Computed example of a mutant assay.
Amino acid sequence: MTGRGLALVRRTAPDAETIYQLYVLDERRRLVGTLSLRELILNSPASSVRALMTSWCRPRWICPRKRWRALSAATTC
């Protein structure tokens, strides 16, 4: 819920100089998306953060010795 998200921003805001983007993490603290502070503020406190955020594809680990072709194929969402 965005109400809980705003409460979290309020607790951490005193340590931040500026806040524009918020990072959305899963329960294992992995990045799952981003959300603008503007979107968080302007939507209803009952709105879901998941519905408002921009989702990121799951990161894939690449061995540095792999060829470029394998790298480009593995990084597509």
Rank of each mutant, 00 (worst) to 15 (best):
E39N: 13
S55D: 11
S47G: 11
P14F: 02
L35I: 05
G33K: 08
I19A: 03
V9C: 04
A16I: 09
T18C: 06
T18G: 09
V32R: 10
I41N: 11
I19L: 02
D26G: 07
R60Q: 07
V49M: 05
V49T: 08
Y20H: 13
R60V: 14
R4C: 13
G5W: 04
W56V: 15
A16P: 11
A46E: 13
W68G: 00
E39C: 12
I62L: 02
P45C: 09
R60P: 06
L8E: 13
L52N: 06
A13L: 04
T18Y: 08
A73I: 03
P59K: 05
R60C: 08
S55G: 11
R30V: 15
L31V: 05
L22Y: 00
L6T: 09
S55F: 07
V24I: 05
W68Y: 04
L35R: 06
V24W: 02
Y23M: 08
R29K: 10
D26P: 07
G33T: 08
T2F: 03
S72V: 01
R58H: 15
W61H: 10
R30W: 13
S55T: 11
A70Q: 00
W56R: 11
I41F: 05
T18S: 08
E39V: 12
L8P: 14
R29M: 14
D26C: 07
P14R: 01
M1Q: 15
R67N: 00
N43P: 14
T54S: 07
T54W: 02
L71K: 01
G3V: 14
T12V: 10
V49W: 02
A16M: 09
L52Q: 06
P64V: 00
M1K: 10
G33W: 03
P59Q: 05
P45Q: 10
Y20C: 10
V32H: 07
A16K: 07
T54C: 08
T34K: 13
R38N: 10
C57K: 14
L31G: 04
R10K: 09
R4N: 15
P64C: 03
A16H: 06
R60W: 04
N43L: 08
T18M: 07
C63M: 05
T18P: 11
D15V: 14
K66L: 08
D26Y: 09
L8F: 08
R50K: 14
W61E: 10
A46R: 12
I62Y: 00
T76I: 13
A51N: 09
S72Q: 03
Q21A: 07
A51S: 07
C77I: 09
A73E: 02
S44I: 15
R67K: 03
R60H: 05
L71R: 02
Y23L: 07
A16S: 07
S72K: 00
P45D: 09
R11P: 09
R30L: 12
S44W: 04
T75N: 06
V24F: 00
A70Y: 01
R38W: 06
P14N: 00
S55L: 12
R67Q: 00
A74Y: 01
C77F: 03
A13F: 02
C77H: 03
R28H: 15
S55V: 15
L6F: 03
M1L: 15
V32E: 12
I62R: 01
S72L: 01
K66Q: 04
S47N: 10
T75H: 04
